[in-house]
Structure formats: C-alpha cells, structure tokens
C-alpha cells in the first residue's frame, strides 16, 4: 500500500509546508518529521510528509548499480554497459 511521492519543500509555516512536484503545488503537514528546511525533498503520503529523501543515498544507489552493471557487461561481452 501507500502511494507517496517525493516533493520539494518551498515554504514552511509552522507544521504546514507548501511542496512542489514538478509545478504542482500543495500543502502538506510536516508534524511527523523533524528538521526540514526549504529545498529539502520529502516523501508525502496522504497529505503528510513521512520522511526526508536522503539525497546522498539516492545518488549512491544509482551509481552503485550503474557501475556493477557496467562491470558485468564489460566482463560479458567486452562492451561498455552504457547504452
């Protein structure tokens, strides 16, 4: 279950923040999380931010995967993994 979309905080007003998803702006309650600031990405579920997105982890996941796959590909057929 649990649809939730990464949204960028653009304004904070006590426990309510305005968040942006590619030009769609709406209000979200931030009372379930600590230390948010403007510019942070939060995961919003049913009108509540339930966590911050860890940017470093996000990038690392993709990079790790790319490098592992690229390595495998080179091993397999001598080509670079990037299409």
């Amino acid at each position: 279950m649990c649809l939730a979309v990464p949204s960028k905080i653009i304004e904070i007003n006590d426990t309510v923040a305005r968040v942006d998803v590619d030009g769609v702006i709406r209000e979200t309650c931030i009372m379930l999380i600590d230390d948010v600031k403007i510019g942070d990405y939060v995961i919003v579920h049913a009108g509540f931010a339930i966590n911050k997105v860890d940017e470093e982890a996000a990038l690392k996941t993709l990079e790790d995967m790319r490098s592992i796959l690229a390595m495998e590909d080179r091993k397999a057929d001598g080509l670079s993994g990037h299409p």
């Binding site: 979309v5 769609v24 919003v44």
Partner: peptide
C-alpha cells in the same frame, strides 16, 4: 506534461 504526470503520481 510534467505537472500532469505529477498530479497522476500524487493521486494514483
């Protein structure tokens, strides 16, 4: 459009 996709993601 991006924003249209955004609303679709938000509401499923």
């Amino acid at each position: 459009r991006g924003a249209v996709q955004g609303v679709c993601e938000l509401l499923g």
